[in-house]
Write a protein that binds this DNA or RNA. Structure first.
Lengths: 139, 139
DNA sequence: GAGCAATAATTGGTGACGTCAATAGTTGTT
DNA sequence: AACAACTATTGACGTCACCAATTATTGCTC
C-alpha cells in the first residue's frame, strides 16, 4: 500500500483517465470521440435537448457543446432546430443516421466497459455502479 | 436511468475528471498540480526512484516526467542524483523541503477525498476502494 | 411600455495535458 | 568492434477545460 494508490480520490482520477482512453480508441474508427458519443447517447434518451441542457447534464462547457454539435451535424447525425418558445435557444435532435450509428456501436460500447471491469463479477459491478452513482449525484 | 450515466465506464470517466479538479484546486495555492503531488507521494514511499520508474508506475509519459521533476527541482523539493550503476539514468530523491511540504498537505489531501466521498459511510468507502484497486491492478 | 438585467448560443484565447517522433549518451550483446 | 536496446530529453501537434467577450433574445421592473 504505497504512494498515492492508497488514495481513493487519486484512484478515481487514474481510472477515469484509463476509461476515457478505452472509449476513445474504440470510437477512433468512427471519427468521433467520447464527448460526441456522450452527446449522442444523451439525445437518444431525451428526444431533443437544448444546448444549455446538454452543457448542464454532461458537464461540458457551453462553448464546447457548440463544437461538438457542429461536428455531429457535419456527419449528419444531429440537427439544430429552432426552439418554438424561445428564439435564443436551439433544440438538438438525433437524425436517423445518428440513431443507426448508435445501434451499430451499442454492443462495442458495452464491450469497453466489460474490459474495464473484467476483474469484477456481476454482483460487484452492480455494487460499484451504485456507489459511483451516489458520488456522482452530489452537488 | 438515462443516457450514458447508466454506464459504469462513463461514470468512472466523469468522476475521474471531478476528482482531478478537486485535487488541483486544493494544490493551487502551492503552485503545484496533481501530477507533481503524485510524484512527491510516490517518492515518499520509495526513497529514490529512476525517472523511468516514475513514468511506469504513475502512468505519465517519460517526457512529462522531465518537466515535472524540473518543476519540483526548481522548488527545491527533489534532487536528481546520478545513478551509481547506470550513467544513463538518474535517481530522483525527496529533499527535506519536499518531505515537510508533504507533511503540511497530508491532511488537506485527505479532506479532498473526504469531500468527494461524502455520501458514503466508512464501510462503503472501503468497499469502493477495494473494487477500484482490483480494476486498477489489471494489465 | 421603456429600460435593463439575465440568458442562449457563439467566438476567441490561454494553459494543461496525452501522444508521438527524434536525438544524444550509455549499456549490453554478439 | 559493431549494433540493438534503453534513459533522459526536446519538440511538435491535437484535445480539452476554463474564462472573457459578443450578439440576439427574453423577462423583469418601475
Amino acid at each position: 500500500m504505497r504512494g498515492l494508490h492508497a488514495d481513493t480520490g487519486y484512484l478515481l482520477y487514474r481510472l477515469g483517465l484509463r476509461s476515457g482512453q478505452l472509449f476513445n480508441t474504440f470510437l477512433q474508427e468512427s471519427g468521433l470521440r467520447l464527448r460526441h458519443y456522450a452527446v449522442l447517447r444523451y439525445l437518444a434518451g431525451s428526444e431533443g435537448a437544448l444546448q444549455r441542457e446538454l452543457s448542464a447534464q454532461l458537464g461540458y462547457d457551453p462553448s464546447a457543446i457548440v463544437g461538438l454539435v457542429d461536428d455531429l451535424e457535419k456527419l449528419g447525425m444531429t440537427e439544430r432546430r429552432p426552439s418554438p418558445d424561445d428564439r435564443r435557444s436551439k433544440t438538438v435532435v438525433l437524425t436517423d443516421t445518428g440513431r443507426s450509428f448508435l445501434r451499430g456501436t451499442d454492443e462495442a460500447g458495452r464491450r469497453v466497459t466489460n474490459d474495464l471491469l473484467a476483474p469484477l463479477d456481476p454482483a460487484e459491478r452492480d455494487t460499484l455502479q451504485a456507489l459511483l452513482l451516489r458520488i456522482a449525484d452530489q452537488p
